[in-house]
Design a protein around this nucleic acid. Structure first.
Lengths: 230, 230
DNA sequence: GCAAAAGTGTTTCAGGTACACCCATGA
DNA sequence: TCATGGGTGTACCTGAAACACTTTTGC
């Protein structure tokens, strides 16, 4: 790396903070950790880490998410950069927030005690350190906006899921109830789901059919100039 | 600033790059500069600058925009952070992009030669250095999405403007033609504009009435649970 | 047989879209 | 008087929202 061009410029610690979201018990969940170091030791925080000189910021975020979940190949998007002067009480740190949507069934629970983490419902989020609450709020806004027009919500589910589950996922994202018939109608007329033969009997006696998201059909939909919309 | 907590971590040059947009001759325009330093001296770039230790990243962006336009109090929003390893050919630089919407009538033209800048139509953007083209593309996406649901487009106009001008602004943002009657209907039924008595006769013999965006009326609209939408 | 969740259609309404003519004025 | 851009209203159509009953099955 050639450093002769930009001289006498200040340099900064750069961190990534990750809003890792899952879905369980009909509610969105966020992974938070009890901080093990000062300042604010014992406070709840997002999963974070410093960016290394050898990696891009996207790679740093991916590394952090894998470290705390044990999952790779996770859907992630940048939320934004946070650069207030005193956002981190210990030192000047510029942080870039990312959100990750994970299938909680793939989560490695052994990492919970290792990193002192916990899944909490978004409706019951405790106070977070620094500006982490703002990062979460911005994430939820992005998620609400984006889940409506892109099929990103499926990243929160296993590859098989029932329509009632999918509906409750969207209800949790939008924080409002949705009419069952309208929801199913919209979804099924898009023709991007594949109905399975088996049913999920875990939450009712009758059982609900499993469906699978069909990426090929989705791509066709887009090619036809149509849009995903929920 | 206390630096005893986070030790042995890499630090980075952090820059801001600003997509400064204006509106003139019925088209969106972007301010670009011919780069005066290596690497890629002579290439077209966005307005950029390094973040100083004494300022937040938002303040850095504001400083840069003022420096290149001579205008303060500009509408700005963050686009995102760009952190690929070799995005800047000279050194590892993490850059945070911001877009700014300015009233070109307030632009200080004397700064053009000082900074080697030029306004170009977005439809005629030359090749830009580094990942600046990607920043512009992301900005245009954000602008198209956001201008449809928030009255941010008015930041590109003086405080008086005609409806034909406003329409051509939206046509330039969306890159498509809009029906005159539908546009006016939607806008006027929102009741957020104030009709002036004077006309703008510069672009027709008959002249078009000036209007003013009325922030109070807009706030009322929102309070009533209604939405801006164009 | 009953409780509990899954599944299914129709009507209504609002908002978006398409569309063509008259008006005012300077040259 | 004519060329140029400004201004106006209606009909249609699509998609969103509201709404209630039947089905399945384990207990």
């Amino acid at each position: 790396m050639n450093s002769t061009f930009y001289q006498n410029k200040d340099t900064f610690l750069v961190a990534v903070d990750c809003i890792i979201m899952g879905f369980r018990d009909n509610e969105l969940q966020i992974l938070i950790a009890r901080r093990r170091m000062e300042p604010l030791k014992g406070g709840w925080s997002l999963m974070g880490g410093f960016v290394n000189a050898t990696e891009s910021i996207n790679e740093a975020a991916k590394r952090v998410v894998e470290e705390y979940t044990g999952i790779d190949n996770i859907f992630m998007e940048q939320v934004g950069a946070y650069g207030e002067l005193n956002r981190d009480l210990a030192d000047r740190v510029i942080s870039i927030a990312y959100f990750a949507l994970v299938d909680m069934d793939l989560f490695d629970s052994s990492l919970i005690e290792k990193h002192n983490t916990r899944w909490v419902r978004i409706t019951q989020l405790p106070e977070l350190i620094f500006d982490h609450k703002k990062m979460v709020d911005n994430t939820i806004n992005i998620l609400q906006r984006k889940a409506a027009i892109k099929p990103i919500g499926f990243n929160l589910l296993g590859d098989q899921f029932t329509l009632p589950t999918l509906q409750s996922l969207y209800e949790s994202i939008y924080q409002e109830r949705i009419d069952k018939r309208n929801f199913r109608k919209k979804l099924l007329t898009m023709d991007i789901l594949e109905k399975m033969e088996e049913k999920d009997k875990s939450s009712s006696k009758r059982g609900a059919f499993y469906y699978r998201f069909n990426k090929e059909k989705y791509d066709q939909l887009i090619e036809q100039g149509l849009h995903f919309s929920l």
